[in-house]
């Protein structure tokens, strides 16, 4: 079900267009939709290495560089802990949440920083960081928008990593729930079939669905009913010609 706010996000994304990496609009839309002074998206590899995906402006770029250098800050903590984190006054005199990050972030011009995990179940993609030049908490509406944005980003990153165009995303979220449980169940099955993480399996399923011009839910159904499986030795998908249990 596409909510009104989700439609707002998509129309903003369409307005902003995409850069070569197809990601630029995600950060500027995140800053704009939450009405904050900067936004950055970081990605986390299976080995917990953090890289920057995009930054909305110079402030966000400075803070993201700082965080990657220090390995400390909102994005780092949100993505490793899987929880929403915040420091609502980076220049406060009392012990800051992030000892090294806070004073340098404040010096760069930020007074509050927020980290939202970007995840789909157990698949941890990274974090959305939001910055403001004034101290204080997010409003309820801003918090709600940040969560929604993080969920859009999770699905967008999945699209990017699986090589399908980001434009497909809006269509997909309109047409069906992006939270179809069959896709998650299928990812679990493929993770075991291919001895890979659930995150890698989610990407692989999407890549295959896109390559075969198949609906994601249709492929998921085939995996669950064992009509299609991923063979790790052959490193390819095997389609069972007739129905029945392949075991």
């Amino acid at each position: 079900m596409a909510t009104d706010r989700l439609l707002d996000i998509f129309s903003l994304m369409a307005e902003r267009g995409v850069d070569d990496a197809g990601t630029h609009s995600l950060c500027s839309v995140a800053a704009e939709i939450t009405q904050l002074d900067g936004a950055a998206i970081s990605l986390t590899s299976d080995g917990d290495e953090m890289t920057a995906l995009c930054m909305s402006n110079d402030l966000a770029r400075t803070l993201m560089d700082l965080e990657i250098t220090l390995r400390e800050g909102p994005a780092f903590e949100a993505s490793t802990g899987g929880m929403v984190v915040q420091d609502v006054d980076l220049a406060a005199a009392s012990a800051p949440r992030w000892m090294m990050y806070a004073p340098q972030a404040a010096a760069a011009g930020a007074r509050a920083a927020f980290g939202f995990p970007v995840r789909i179940g157990a698949a941890n993609f990274g974090a959305l960081s939001l910055y403001r030049e004034n101290p204080g908490h997010l409003s309820d509406a801003q918090t709600s928008d940040a969560y929604l944005m993080a969920s859009v980003i999770a699905r967008a990153v999945l699209s990017i990593q699986s090589g399908s165009p980001i434009g497909e995303l809006a269509k997909e979220l309109h047409g069906q729930s992006g939270l179809d449980f069959r896709v998650h169940q299928a990812a679990g099955m493929v993770a075991v079939q291919g001895s890979m993480s659930v995150k890698a399996a989610l990407v692989l399923i999407r890549t295959h669905a896109f390559a075969e011009a198949m609906e994601l839910s249709e492929l998921a159904e085939k995996i669950i009913t064992r009509a299609t499986r991923f063979d790790s030795l052959l490193d390819s998908w095997i389609v069972k010609p007739t129905s029945g249990d392949p075991k």
């Binding site: 179940g121 157990a122 449980f181 169940q185 299928a186 990812a187 679990g188 099955m189 993770a191 075991v192």
Partner: peptide, 15 residues
Amino acid sequence: NSRIIIEQAKGMVRQ
């Protein structure tokens, strides 16, 4: 999100 993790784990157990 817990529910999604459970669905992912269910798929692993099924397989």
